[in-house]
Amino acid sequence: MKTFTLHKGLVVGIDRPNIDTDMIIPKQFLKSIKRSGFGQNLFDELRYMDEGKPGVDCKSRILRDDFPLNYPRYTSASILLAQENFGCGSSREHAPWALEDYGFRVIIAPSFADIFFTNCLKNGLLPIVLSKKIVKYIFDQVEITEGYQLSVDLQKQVVITPSSDEFFFDIDEFSKRALLEGLDEIGLTLKESDLICAYEVEHMKNAPWIFGAIK
């Protein structure tokens, strides 16, 4: 997995609650059997005038002028600022794949949907929960300050503003280490193979019907 330690980048805000994963990456792009190439269709319906189709080069498509990602001042943004319940709905990991492929490394919101939050962490994309008040403050700063950038220090678990204010954020120890070190989670779990085997022996005694039925 891609590591995450420090990141400094331009911030773009989408000021709308309940952005669902259908909105982040519409279903027609889920037919791909690859993990890459979803960035050009990120927020496809909000971003383009026409209906997106898989396999079509998006460079010639007409952009909607009312969507923040399309404003020239935000073209190189790598930190996405969002509202409550970001990433709700479908479990599709194509959503973080699309955000990461587009160039985002950090998403800041007052709350996230559970499955989306986990999926981000598996892809080197850092979801940060900050209070509604702080998120509103950042939205205001992004609005009034062209080129507004934030720094994120995962080791210290802080978001740092241009005026050197620091906002602490929470992250569980396992995910933090996985991101900092770019851990292979499967490899790590397989180191506990003995525990899994021992559990299986007991489980088979207690609930034998679970085993061997499907073949």
Binding site: E93, I115, K122, D172, E185
Partner: peptide, 21 residues
């Protein structure tokens, strides 16, 4: 019972376990 992402699908296939909280 709950939904998981594709990275977790791979993890469950390989280990029969899920890393979770």
């Amino acid at each position: 019972a709950h939904g998981i992402g594709t990275s977790e699908v791979e993890h469950v296939l390989a280990t029969q376990c899920l890393v979770t909280k």
